[in-house]
């Protein structure tokens, strides 16, 4: 009986998938903003095909939406979650615009959105650094 309880407890501990911490989610958000930026740079240099670029930008946008929702529910300690949410929302907007501009093959407009995303990336990095220093 005791061994059975131990087995059940061990399995519960083993498979109790705790979600990533808010700080890890913020790092993930930074990684996806950086991915969108790298994919954007590559597209402007004619390195990647349109379909791949659009899909990657859409994936970045969707993932950032999910991460933003999670970060609102469980904020990163010491980080102004309202400001972070508005920053991530703005970044998503730039990425969505970039995806649309790939379809339209509008390079100048794409470059403008990419520049704005680069500014946002710097700010997300500041949030991530500040969260890391407070850990």
């Amino acid at each position: 009986m005791r061994s059975k309880r131990f087995l059940v407890a061990s399995l519960v501990v083993l498979f109790a998938c705790k979600p990533p911490t808010p700080a890890e989610q913020l790092d993930s958000a930074l990684s996806w903003v950086a991915t969108a930026r790298m994919a954007g740079d590559a597209w402007l240099q004619h390195t990647t095909p349109d379909k791949y670029t659009r899909q990657t930008l859409e994936l970045s946008q969707q993932t950032l939406l999910q991460l933003g929702t999670k970060l609102l529910k469980s904020p990163v300690p010491g980080v102004d979650s309202a400001s972070l949410d508005s920053l991530l929302t703005r970044s998503r907007g730039h990425i969505a615009q970039m995806a649309a501009l790939v379809t339209a093959k509008n390079s100048p407009g794409f470059r403008q959105q990419l520049d704005s995303l680069i500014s946002d990336e710097t700010l997300v990095k500041q949030f991530a650094d500040s969260a890391e220093s407070k850990q």
Binding site: D27, S31, A39, Y52, T56, T63, K125
Partner: peptide, 10 residues
């Protein structure tokens, strides 16, 4: 660039 590979696209 701070990119962690979570998906193949990255």
């Amino acid at each position: 660039r701070g990119i962690d590979i979570e998906k193949f696209e990255q």
